[in-house]
Design a protein around this nucleic acid. Structure first.
Lengths: 136, 136
DNA sequence: CAGCATCCATGACGATACTG
DNA sequence: CAGTATCGTCATGGATGCTG
């Protein structure tokens, strides 16, 4: 059931009235966020940078299992989205530092809540999976 | 939050002692949550069921672009994870109703925060993308 | 150090057809 | 109505080698 009842009854016919973005519409830009969060590494990178600025190989070391192709690719996407910053110092060899933008910081708040839930409740999920598999 | 501010010296390599739930460890169960959230439809289905119980074809109609294979598959996963309930009434033809479990409801809280952010800030992201593309 | 380019395997996903 | 079964695709992402 609805937990707070604040949602307008959506079961009715086709409202073209674009409320604040209908996630269920395939063309809603919000779907992009899901794609972003959906890819394998974005959330992890964001989370890590949330702890403090970091360099390329630093990130690579901290994130278990990421290939450097994906790290590079994901960082570029995040930078393009305005979620992370990229600063190049013209040393030799070059030094590149990544960080989170204020926008990225906002998103991080939500992300951390999600991860927090996971860290405390994934045990319950695992148990449920076990029960399910036994039943089948 | 999980951050205590005293992370093992970031510049150093060496041992990252797997504290309780290190998301960055590839073996951390928390990664499973990211996989789940990562797939294309789980979040959408959860969000929709958060509005109220719903039947199979009801869900299919509401979610733009989902195939019935993926709907079926994702619902089974969510049920296995203990996030979604599935009730069968032995009518003819059979009637199946889906809903969220308390556990799923907890997760929904975090998810909604994320979607909320997206609905209000995706415009900023889009703008950043534009700027980035122009710059390159 | 911080990447880019290329090749290739896997599997996620969609389309279609059929069932209790 | 609520699915299962099968097949084909295409993108994701890992491995490897090269560069400034």
């Amino acid at each position: 059931m609805t937990q707070d009842g604040t949602l307008p009854s959506p079961g009715h016919l086709g409202e073209t009235a674009p409320r604040r973005g209908d996630v269920f519409d395939r063309d809603c830009p919000t779907r992009q966020l899901l794609d972003r969060v959906g890819d394998k590494w974005s959330v992890l990178i964001l989370l890590l940078l949330g702890e403090g600025d970091m360099r390329f190989n630093g990130l690579k070391r901290r994130i278990g299992g990421i290939s450097q192709k994906m790290l590079s690719q994901t960082l570029r996407s995040l930078e393009r989205d305005g979620l992370v910053t990229r600063e190049v110092e013209p040393t030799v060899p070059v030094t590149v530092t990544y960080g989170v933008t204020p926008l990225g910081c906002e998103l991080l708040t939500a992300l951390r809540l999600m991860i927090d839930w996971a860290e405390t409740r994934m045990a319950a999920v695992a148990e449920s999976q076990g029960a399910y598999d036994r039943r089948v």
